[in-house]
Simulated assay, not measured.
Amino acid sequence: MLIMRSDEQAEAAFADIDFEQVMDAMGRFNGELIDAGVLVAAEGLDDAAEGVVVDYSGETPVVTAGPYGEAKELFGGFWILDVASKEEAVEWAKRVPLAGPGMKTEIRRVTSIDEFPVDNEWIRKERAWREATGQL
Rank of each mutant, 00 (worst) to 15 (best):
T64P: 06
E70K: 15
W92S: 04
W92H: 03
F78G: 09
E91R: 14
V90L: 14
E73R: 08
A93C: 05
K72F: 10
L74I: 12
S85K: 05
G69C: 08
E70Q: 14
A93Q: 03
T105V: 15
V62N: 10
K86S: 10
S85G: 06
R95C: 02
L81E: 06
E70M: 15
I80M: 13
E88S: 10
E70A: 15
K86G: 13
A65H: 10
T64L: 08
M103G: 01
K86D: 11
V90A: 11
Y56W: 03
E87K: 08
E59Q: 12
T105N: 11
G102M: 04
G77P: 09
R95F: 02
G69E: 13
G69S: 13
T60A: 13
G77F: 07
V90G: 05
G100S: 01
G66F: 08
G69H: 11
K104Q: 12
A89R: 02
P97F: 03
E87W: 03
F75K: 08
P61I: 03
E87C: 03
K72E: 14
I80L: 15
G76I: 04
G100R: 00
G66A: 11
E59P: 01
T64G: 08
V62L: 15
E91L: 11
A93Y: 01
Y68V: 06
A93V: 01
K94R: 15
D82G: 04
E91C: 09
E87R: 08
P61R: 05
K72W: 07
E87G: 12
G66I: 06
G66P: 02
E88R: 11
F75V: 15
P97K: 05
R95Q: 14
L98E: 00
G102Q: 06
A93I: 00
F78E: 06
S57M: 10
S57C: 09
R95S: 05
A89E: 01
L81V: 09
A65F: 03
G77S: 09
P97D: 04
A65K: 13
F75Y: 12
R95K: 15
R95M: 07
K86P: 09
E87N: 10
I80P: 00
K72R: 15
T60Q: 13
D82P: 00
V90T: 08
E87D: 15
W79Q: 04
K94G: 04
P67R: 09
P67I: 09
A71W: 09
P97T: 02
L98I: 00
W79P: 02
P97R: 03
E88Y: 06
F75A: 14
M103R: 09
T60G: 04
V62H: 11
S57G: 13
M103L: 06
D82K: 10
W92C: 02
D82F: 02
F78R: 08
K72L: 15
V63E: 07
E70Y: 12
G76M: 13
D82N: 12
A89I: 03
L81R: 08
Y56H: 04
K86F: 14
R95E: 09
T60I: 08
F75C: 11
E87A: 14
E73Q: 11
T60P: 01
A71K: 06
P61N: 07
V63W: 02
E73C: 01
G102I: 00
P61V: 02
A93H: 01
A99Q: 03
K72Y: 07
A65N: 12
Y56F: 13
T64E: 11
M103H: 07
E70I: 11
A99T: 02
E73M: 07
